[in-house]
Amino acid sequence: MLKLNELRANVRTSKAFCGSLLLAAFLLPGAACADQTTAPAAAPRVEVSSARISTAPRTIVFIHGMFMTPKAWDNWQAYFQARGYTTLAPAWPLHEGPIQQQWSEASQARLGKLTLDEVVESYRQVLRRLPEKPIVIGHSMGGLVAQKLLAEGLAAQAVAIDSAPASGLIVLQWSFIRSNWPVISPFAPANKAYAPSLESFRYAFANCLPDAESEFLYRNYIVPESRLVGRATSEKVAEIDFSQRHGPLLMLAGENDNIIPASLNLKNFGKYSDESSVTNFHKFNNQCHALIVDKHWKDVADYVGVWLENQ
């Protein structure tokens, strides 16, 4: 597991190809071509602390990402409830109800107007009603929301899994551009929901999985999504003050993630500069974006559980 104050000593840095600066500016206004970094190949196993602070939070709020619903966290809720945590997995606005219902034309028409501001605010309201500051665990765009809530002091600890980037962060990796293009393309109607095909899901989310498993996940977990939410990562709502002190943060990445490359998660991690705050990074080898729902989800949950017990 990589710690913030070890980043510069342990990470090899190589210049990103800057000839595509115009393309980067086109995709995400204000983004700049920057260094890409890669984490060390191996991360040490985390050992469980023998004495956990008695005031550690015991409530977890799970935050799903784009194209998913709270169903993505069903196994995780059971896992952490069995370990004594109280868990909640609120839906984003307009993401309640059965999967098939969300594929209806009426649902998609409403969904197209959803913004990231509305998503973040819905979770602020959830956290403010809780009796304690909780742990927040988010995946993909939910990982960015988790970082945001931690930065705002509404959460005690956060885990960001395959997190969407904070404002201004980008990598010039073809899989990142190809996977996100249907959402961020200026030729696509901004206020019309995007319904991914099985083929596009396989490339963006499930590129490391067998076809049968990827099709099962697509049929049982995936829903259409608002393009406005995805485009907001270049806006003010996605800004984070990386210099301020914050509660413990764990950032996780999948080595083979196409839609949110591990190098982008590592770049996000490296932006945090307060050395008095706990900020850790870990990359799961041979994993892709579907790592919270695929057959290896428990490996990720185990790692998160051990990390939480050590805070």
Rank of each mutant, 00 (worst) to 15 (best):
M1T: 02
M1L: 05
L4R: 14
L4N: 06
N5I: 09
N5S: 11
S14H: 08
S14A: 04
K15Q: 11
F17V: 10
L27S: 11
A34R: 15
Q36S: 11
P40Y: 12
P57F: 09
T69R: 08
A72D: 00
A72F: 00
D74H: 10
N75M: 02
F80R: 05
R83P: 04
A89P: 06
A91T: 02
Q102W: 02
S104I: 12
S107C: 12
K113Y: 12
T115W: 01
E118C: 06
Y123G: 04
L127K: 12
L130T: 02
P131T: 11
E132L: 06
V136H: 07
H139G: 01
G142W: 00
G153M: 08
L154M: 08
L154A: 10
A156F: 06
A156L: 02
Q157I: 09
D162S: 09
D162I: 01
A166C: 11
S167H: 07
L169W: 03
I170M: 12
F176K: 04
W181K: 05
I184F: 14
S185W: 08
F187W: 15
Y194H: 15
S197K: 03
A204R: 07
A206Y: 00
C208F: 03
C208E: 07
S214I: 00
R219C: 02
L228N: 10
T233F: 10
A238N: 13
Q244W: 02
R245D: 05
G247P: 13
L249T: 09
L252T: 04
E255M: 11
P261I: 05
P261D: 07
N265R: 07
G270Q: 11
D274P: 02
A290C: 03
D294V: 01
D299A: 13
A301K: 00
D302C: 11
